[in-house]
Amino acid sequence: MTNDDLIDRIITPTTHDLGGFKVHRTLPSKPHQMVGPFIFFDQMGPAHLDIGTGIDVRPHPHINLATVTYLFAGAIDHRDSIGTFARIEPGAVNLMTAGHGIAHSERSPGDERAHGPELSGIQTWIAMPEDKEEIDPAFEHVAKANLPLIEAHGATARIIMGELWGQRAPTTVYADTIYADILLAPGASMPIDAGADERAVYLAIGEAEIDGMPMAINTLYVLKPGVAMTLRSANGGRVMLCGGEAFTSERHVWWNFVSSRKDRIQQAKEDWKAGRFAKVPGDEKEFIPIPEIPKTATYP
């Protein structure tokens, strides 16, 4: 098959240098807003920060989405306005459901700062079905040991969300969702079945190809529906697989807000400006103000 038979769209990243580390963003993009329920896809790092420093994402709000944080290296302390305090480390997953509104912060733990934190991982946002957008906010941590691990032919795949290769992750899903971390040793391969409505693969680290087509680093490949494919790596690589149910209604994105309704986003903006979101216990002194021009905005 030709590349046109395999790939629906190739999305190159928008890269932001945040001082000490880079973030590569492939969703949302002007040509392609979502892949299944995934509406935001960021790779953080890889980076090794200076001793005594770390990441400090001050309290900020979300509505009508769920954030999914998954690390390759390092650690992050999560706090939110429903009282959660949780440390995430590589191979585990943090799922924060914003529902009708939540605020949270993400910071490097003190012990990580003492020796110079590592930072490497993926953060995604999941859009919610319309009937679940305004549910109560929630938080869920699933330990590495509780996520299924598939091992075959020099490849390992950790299932983060949904069902793949005959096993299902315990992580909550709100629409049909697939999400996996695939580690390919040199010479290894891994089949990608055709089951989901929409699928994409992303080369995070190293080298890989999809059915003989070389993949570029930090690039999202939206796959043609209904076509089974195989990932391979001659020298070793790490690939994320994401996708799931195709949404039939539009989603609007502005800053940290996602919703099927523009007026709901406007209300969330006003609520944050007016201080109507609940505070984050243990992190009440700081917050991120509403930006004049957000880096994430609706694309028609």
Rank of each mutant, 00 (worst) to 15 (best):
Asn3Glu: 14
Asp4Arg: 03
Asp4Met: 00
Asp4Tyr: 00
Ile10Ser: 01
Ile11Leu: 15
Thr12Asp: 09
Thr15Asn: 05
Thr15Gly: 00
His16Ala: 12
Asp17Gln: 12
Gly19Thr: 09
Pro37Trp: 06
Asp42Thr: 06
Gln43Ala: 09
His48Cys: 03
Gly52Cys: 06
Ile55Met: 14
Pro59Gln: 09
Pro61Gln: 04
Asn64Met: 07
Thr67His: 02
Leu71Thr: 08
Phe72Ser: 05
Gly74Asn: 11
Ile76Lys: 09
Ile82His: 02
Thr84Gln: 10
Phe85Gly: 02
Leu95Met: 13
Leu95Gly: 01
His100Ile: 06
Glu106Thr: 05
Glu106Gln: 13
Arg113Trp: 03
Gly116Asn: 10
Trp125Tyr: 05
Phe139Tyr: 15
Val142Pro: 01
Thr156Gln: 13
Ile160Glu: 02
Glu163Cys: 07
Leu164Asp: 09
Trp165His: 15
Ala169Arg: 04
Pro170Gly: 09
Thr171Gln: 03
Val173Gln: 14
Val173Ser: 13
Asp176Pro: 01
Pro186Val: 04
Ala194Pro: 07
Asp197Glu: 06
Tyr202Phe: 15
Ile205Pro: 00
Asp211Ala: 08
Gly212Pro: 03
Met215Thr: 08
Leu223Cys: 11
Pro225Cys: 05
Pro225Lys: 11
Pro225Thr: 07
Leu231Arg: 09
Asn235Gln: 12
Arg238His: 14
Cys242Val: 12
Glu245Trp: 02
Lys273Ile: 14
Glu286Phe: 11
Glu286Met: 13
Phe287Ala: 14
Glu292Gly: 13
Pro300Gln: 08
